[in-house]
Simulated assay, not measured.
Amino acid sequence: MITEAQGSRWPYADHNALPYSFVLVVLPPSETKSDGGSGAALHLDSLAMPQLTGVRAHLIEQVVRLAGDREGSRTALGLGKGADAEIARNATLRTSPTRPALERYTGVLYDALAAHAFTKTQRAKADARLAIGSALFGAVRARDPIPAYRLSGGSKLPGLPTLSALWRDALAPALHAEAAGELVVDLRSGIYQQLGRVPDAITATVLTEQPDGSRKVVSHFNKHHKGLLARALVLTRAEPADIRGIAKIANTAGLRTEIAAPTELLVLTS
């Protein structure tokens, strides 16, 4: 059952009560997600950033309705004919079990983050410091209970504006409020940043150096090294105040970085 928020049940609704909080790291979601879960069905008032509830509820209604039209779902979601399981996930969004967002998303970045290996204390830090962008939910915190679903930042649902148009006015101020003046490291890809930008957030660009000295973006290394950077920011005891502090944490964790601009960090691979 999905309910309208009367106030968040997020256990750290008072941002000042967040443990270990000094920086908000916003991760991208992933197309791949784990199945199942042991949590109850989705309740929107259990999610952080309750000011997003209206858009969340509207999108869920549209996605569930669209799941009744397989061909329409394939077209809108960019799915092949062998993706009926993804459509079935959307059909049961309201009733399927949930699990914490940090355990729901999978793939290269989340493998590098390796949250499954966190100690109890490290997991508490991750819950406090990590948010995850989402086409369906706008953004969630690491411990928010969500079901498996399929909706990408570039999807276009029939009869609706673009997801960027739907989220922009709500998500940007929600993320700003969630950060509460803290340093923000935004590791989302461009399409998810367009859903709601965080002014002055530090971004990371992963570049692979070629033998001739040239540099280029490579998707796999991009995701892997952003996962390593996020892990370093979760586990550090340092309290960075700016991009230099973020670079120092990354370098200590074994990453090679350059500061390209006051809010752009380059992570270099070879």
Results as ranks from 00 to 15, higher is better:
Gly36Tyr: 07
Arg9Val: 04
Gly39Met: 06
Gln193Phe: 02
Ser73His: 03
Val217His: 13
Asp84Lys: 02
Gln194Ser: 15
Ala126Ile: 08
Ser38Glu: 10
Gly54Val: 13
Asp144Thr: 05
Met49Ser: 05
Arg143Phe: 00
Ala112Met: 03
Glu71Gln: 11
Pro161Ala: 08
Val25Tyr: 05
Val25Met: 09
Ala76Phe: 05
Pro240Trp: 05
Ser270His: 13
Ile191Asn: 14
Gly138Leu: 02
Leu157Trp: 10
Thr3Met: 03
Ala232Leu: 03
Ser155Leu: 12
Ile202Trp: 01
Met49Asp: 07
Ala13Met: 11
Ala85Tyr: 15
Ala67Gly: 12
Pro29Ile: 10
Pro29Trp: 09
Thr162Ile: 04
Ile202Gln: 04
Leu130Met: 05
Pro50Glu: 09
Ile60Asn: 01
Thr3Lys: 07
Ala177Pro: 10
Leu229Ala: 10
Ala114Lys: 13
Arg65Val: 03
Val218Gln: 07
Val23Lys: 00
Glu209Arg: 12
Ala83Ser: 14
Ser38His: 07
Gly82Lys: 11
Arg74Thr: 09
Ala241Gln: 15
Ser34Phe: 01
Ile259Ser: 01
Pro211Asn: 00
Ala172Lys: 13
Val23Met: 14
Pro97Gly: 07
Arg94Lys: 11
Gln51Asp: 14
His220Met: 06
Ser30His: 06
Ser219Arg: 01
Ile191Met: 14
Ser30Met: 02
Leu136Tyr: 03
Val25Glu: 05
Lys125Met: 14
Glu4Arg: 10
Glu239Phe: 07
Thr252Ser: 15
Pro97Phe: 00
Lys248Asn: 07
Ala117Asp: 15
Arg168Glu: 13
Glu31Asn: 09
Pro145Trp: 00
Ala241Arg: 15
Asp14Arg: 06
Ile243Pro: 02
Ala124Cys: 03
Ile60Cys: 09
Thr257Met: 04
Leu183His: 02
Thr269Asp: 12
Asp169Tyr: 03
Asp69Arg: 10
Asp127Tyr: 08
Tyr192His: 12
Ala101Ile: 02
Lys156Asp: 08
Leu175Tyr: 11
Asp242Glu: 14
Arg215Gln: 15
Gln62Asn: 14
Leu59Asn: 12
Arg94Pro: 06
Thr32Ile: 01
Gly37Asn: 11
Phe22Tyr: 09
Asn90Asp: 15
Ile60Lys: 03
Ala40Met: 02
Pro240His: 10
Leu268Ile: 14
Arg237Lys: 09
Leu93Ala: 01
Gly196Asn: 05
Gly190Ala: 15
Ser164Glu: 14
Ser73Met: 13
Ala253Glu: 04
His15Asn: 14
Ile146Cys: 01
Tyr20Ser: 05
Ser155Glu: 10
Thr257Cys: 14
Val217Lys: 12
Glu209Cys: 00
Pro147Asp: 06
Ala232Thr: 09
Ala128Ile: 12
Gln122Pro: 02
Ala128Met: 13
Thr53Val: 12
Asp69Gly: 04
Leu79Lys: 02
Asp242Cys: 09
Ser270Gly: 11
Leu93Cys: 05
Leu255Cys: 11
Leu93Arg: 01
Pro262Ile: 08
Arg94His: 13
Glu239Thr: 15
Leu157Cys: 13
Gln122Phe: 04
Ile259Asn: 04
Ala135Ser: 09
Leu233Phe: 10
Trp10Glu: 12
